[in-house]
């Protein structure tokens, strides 16, 4: 009887997606993140690249891939701001890594777990961002934590809708 070790279990549960999904979904997230705040104004309480980084981190269950996807999305997001490139990159690298690490240990098929992980990692991402910006770079800017909380709630709400939609694109054996 074959023994299901941690690695084989992880390999068994790794999700695979078409290459187009890997290319288009992050790009759409970045474009919408850049465009929607123009429409919604100050009520744009979400961070789509973070949601996508968490989704792929949870789905792929590979911390290296989670870190790379999160880092790439963060760096791209930084390039659209006027801040130094790497602040969002570091925040989302950590978020992607943790999402993948969590994905190994918990049942990511559980809907509540995914939403909760998204919420918590969004808050963590905001905290890392603020830490780098204020303490690592020594900038004098302040952070509105209420907005960051709203953003984490918004991310969780989007995850509730988006994750099942993205699950449809998954390649099934």
């Amino acid at each position: 009887m074959p023994v299901l070790t941690a690695d084989s279990r992880r390999d068994y549960e790794i999700r695979h997606y078409p290459v187009l999904v890997y290319a288009l979904v992050p790009l759409c997230a970045l474009v919408l993140q850049a465009w929607l705040p123009r429409v919604l104004g100050r009520f744009a309480w979400f961070d789509l690249p973070m949601v996508i980084a968490v989704y792929f981190g949870l789905g792929r269950r590979n911390p290296i891939q989670g870190s790379l996807i999160g880092g790439a999305l963060g760096l791209f997001e930084d390039a659209l701001t006027h801040h130094a490139i790497g602040i969002n990159g570091i925040a989302k690298t950590i978020a992607g890594y943790l999402a993948a690490s969590v994905g190994i240990r918990v049942d990511v098929e559980n809907f509540t777990v995914r939403v909760l992980v998204t919420f918590l990692l969004s808050l963590l991402g905001s905290g890392v961002y603020a830490f780098i910006y204020r303490f690592l770079l020594g900038m004098g800017a302040e952070t509105n934590w209420l907005t960051e909380l709203y953003k984490a709630i918004g991310n969780a709400a989007i995850a509730m809708v988006l994750f099942p939609m993205l699950d449809v694109t998954m390649i099934r054996d």
Binding site: Q33, P37, D47, H82, H83, N88, Y133
Partner: peptide
């Protein structure tokens, strides 16, 4: 014409 933004309220820029 304003066509886009930075996507984050920590960087209030638009394109």
């Amino acid at each position: 014409q304003a066509i886009g933004s930075s996507g984050t309220d920590q960087s209030r820029v638009f394109y």
